[in-house]
């Protein structure tokens, strides 16, 4: 059974969002998602300064048997992509909610409150519905 930390927000497409003290958010993929993909061999993160819309593909995660786009959970500007993932994509497997974060976003005005993010409990229901 995959872990779903209670303090994070989620999307139906298996991204998580953590609000940071400085008002930016960290974004990653969930434990369920990394498990479904298998051993990651390549991660592509967006460059700082890129403006993204909610739902826009903005990162790619790749295993030997699958490749998947990661969608921006909310609109905003990328402030950083995780530089460690280029050398160590496996970090995403070992620590999806910590060192394996994908990008930091500065939410567009109102984007954080307006985004249709799920609570941990609701995301858990999504996983159960998917049979995970």
């Amino acid at each position: 059974m995959s872990t779903v930390p209670a303090d994070l927000k989620y999307t139906r497409s298996h991204e998580w969002v953590r609000t940071l003290a400085d008002g930016t958010v960290a974004v990653g993929i969930t434990d369920h998602a990394q498990h479904a993909l298998g051993d990651l061999v390549f991660v592509e993160v967006p460059e700082a300064g890129r403006a993204v819309k909610a739902g826009e593909p903005c990162a790619v995660v790749e295993s030997v048997k699958a490749a998947s786009d990661v969608y921006a959970p909310l609109a905003g500007e990328v402030t950083a992509g995780n530089p460690k993932l280029k050398e160590k994509p496996e970090t995403l497997n070992t620590d999806p909610y910590g060192e394996g974060w994908l990008m930091r976003l500065k939410p567009a005005p109102g984007a954080l409150t307006g985004a249709a993010l799920l609570s941990a409990a609701d995301y858990q229901k999504v996983l159960e519905a998917e049979g995970g």
Binding site: V41, F42, E62, S63, V64, K65, A66, A67, D69
Partner: peptide, 14 residues
């Protein structure tokens, strides 16, 4: 064979 995630049998339309 490697880097197969670029290819049609995995990436399909992409």
């Amino acid at each position: 064979l490697t880097l197969q995630a670029r290819e049609q049998h995995i990436r399909r339309a992409k």
